[in-house]
Design a protein around this nucleic acid. Structure first.
Lengths: 115, 115
DNA sequence: ATTATTGTTTGCCATATGGTGAACTATAGA
DNA sequence: TCTATAGTTCACCATATGGCAAACAATAAT
């Protein structure tokens, strides 16, 4: 229903950072606590937490704190939403391309090798 | 070969803005000059040009100036690159899901309806 | 030759982003 | 209880972003 656009804004924005993409990749293989997730990166925990929050607010991950560790897991649906926008755009383009092909075919039945 | 990561950074970043996504959508139907592209938006031309530059530098559009008008067209390859990253991630996830399914199946041959 | 149109450049501004270190909380372990 | 661990919060900073108005091309159009 609601503001799907906003959701796309935050989704693509979240994906625009290599740290955040790496976290998603990592979590797709297996859920993990914050510290383990943060290890591969040379930034401090507070910075890393900001990235996690971006991922969570954009809906890419969900977290749950048990005891003193917070476990993160990915929400694949969000990946699919972003993917869907892109594939829909491609459909638009394909439709336009088909129209163009039709047009070209009608205009020049002989040869189309011109640039 | 080269820095595909940087390219993903800029690609997703470019897609994170509604104005820029709208421009891409528009251009997928038909190429257009700057002024025509800018019309639907209430911002000034200079601001709009910044968006166009982001789109051009991220490889989503190509522009050519003829006379006093600059025509913009979309580069679909870039859309596909972004889409590919997402679909590859989904493959990772699917592989992990399959492994989990295997595991569950081996552990409980009776019923798998548990969460 | 004027004038209108189309785009571009230049400063400027408020806010967001991504990082830091340091202090703090809360749980687990010895 | 004391201490180490895992995460969180806070104040701060430099830079990037996205908008603006205004001045400036450069090319049509009259």
């Amino acid at each position: 229903m609601a503001n799907n656009n906003l959701s796309l804004d935050t989704a693509f924005y979240a994906l625009s950072d290599p740290t955040r993409r790496a976290v998603i990749s990592r979590l797709l293989r297996r859920s993990a606590p914050v510290k383990e997730l943060a290890e591969p990166f040379k930034m401090g925990l507070p910075s890393f937490l900001k990235h996690l929050r971006v991922l969570e607010e954009s809906g890419f991950i969900v977290t749950e704190k048990i005891g003193r560790t917070r476990t993160c897991r990915v929400r694949v649906e969000r990946l699919e939403e972003a993917e869907n926008w892109l594939s829909e755009q491609r459909k638009l383009w394909q439709a336009a391309t088909d129209r163009l092909a039709h047009y070209v075919e009608e205009q020049m039945p002989g040869d189309g090798t011109d640039d």
